[in-house]
Nucleic acid binder design. Sequence first.
DNA 1: CCGTTCGTACAGTTATTTCTGTACAAAGTA
DNA 2: TACTTTGTACAGAAATAACTGTACGAACGG
Lengths: 186, 186
Amino acid sequence: MERSEDLTPEQEQALLKARKRVIETIGNNMELYGITQSTGHLYGLLFFQNKPMTLDEMGRAMEMSKTSMSTGVRTLVDLKMVNKVWEKGSRKDLYEVELDWFQTFADFFSLKWRKAAEMNLHALRRTKSELQELAERYAGDEAFQHQLQADLSKIDEAIRYYIWLNRLIETFESGEIFKLVPKDMG
Amino acid sequence: MERSEDLTPEQEQALLKARKRVIETIGNNMELYGITQSTGHLYGLLFFQNKPMTLDEMGRAMEMSKTSMSTGVRTLVDLKMVNKVWEKGSRKDLYEVELDWFQTFADFFSLKWRKAAEMNLHALRRTKSELQELAERYAGDEAFQHQLQADLSKIDEAIRYYIWLNRLIETFESGEIFKLVPKDMG
DNA sequence: CCGTTCGTACAGTTATTTCTGTACAAAGTA
DNA sequence: TACTTTGTACAGAAATAACTGTACGAACGG
């Protein structure tokens, strides 16, 4: 915790204790984002910091090596959960959390789910055309046709799902989702 | 692959090759669901099966132990990605994938994200009231008040986000999301 | 009942991931 | 230019997770 505000030790203790619950709960649940428990904990730490933090400060607060802070914070930056900020006069890199969690959520889906959706869609489409070629080549074989059609109809349904998923992700990226599901209910 | 349809070895080869791309791509991307690569691969295998499969058949196809199949398939059942099915005459447990991927996606979010959202919301609210108590107790101390207000406003914004997230998840659970973002575009 | 067959608990092994300390390149400072 | 300071690559150590084989209880068939 930053010391610039000069709290009494008693106050500081009480504040740290209150923060701790949130830091740990959030840290634990961040595995949903595919990040490690300790990186989640780092995120929680940064969340309550009211000033950008250096790697050394993180290391001291987390009681971990600077190397780990470096890799942890890089993960968070890649996920756009944490931003690198500049401060004149300081040679050190400074980091602070992105406080707009709506944005964080949207960015996460753009980054991870869209990539997966597009890879899967690509694989499905390639395999679909491959199966269609097989269907033509062995046009007479009824048993094989039957099998191919079973696979093809599954693939078509999967493609339909991924097209939908891509569209859903688009609503996250564009912010349209907040028109469909408003941030505050009326 | 089930042999009941009696394909030629050549046809079977071609089919397996075509399926392989999809199985592996999907299997790899399933880490987004927090499942292991090999469990993802198992899912891909089941996807193309046109009959429910036993643990022994899975083990043979995956070249892995039956124990691993048992734990893998249990994970998939817990996530409602795979269903246990009954077939008279068979003493063995049979499993098949849930083919409705829209449903699978919705179930996954209900299960995992809602649980996390509720835990976080709970922690945030508890900490919020704890901070409010501190604010009352040290009503005169300006430096401390300043710090408490900084924390409280962050917490309020986080609470706002989780309330929204819960509402979003509700639209998945109720199927309302498919009214907001239609399965097929008009 | 007794003998099978099935699924899974459990303990041990193997494989993977996470974390640390050292070393070094980059960039600033004098 | 030499001297610091900073962030990260890299290799090894420590911690976790995944996988396997054995063993055993449950369910069924004779």
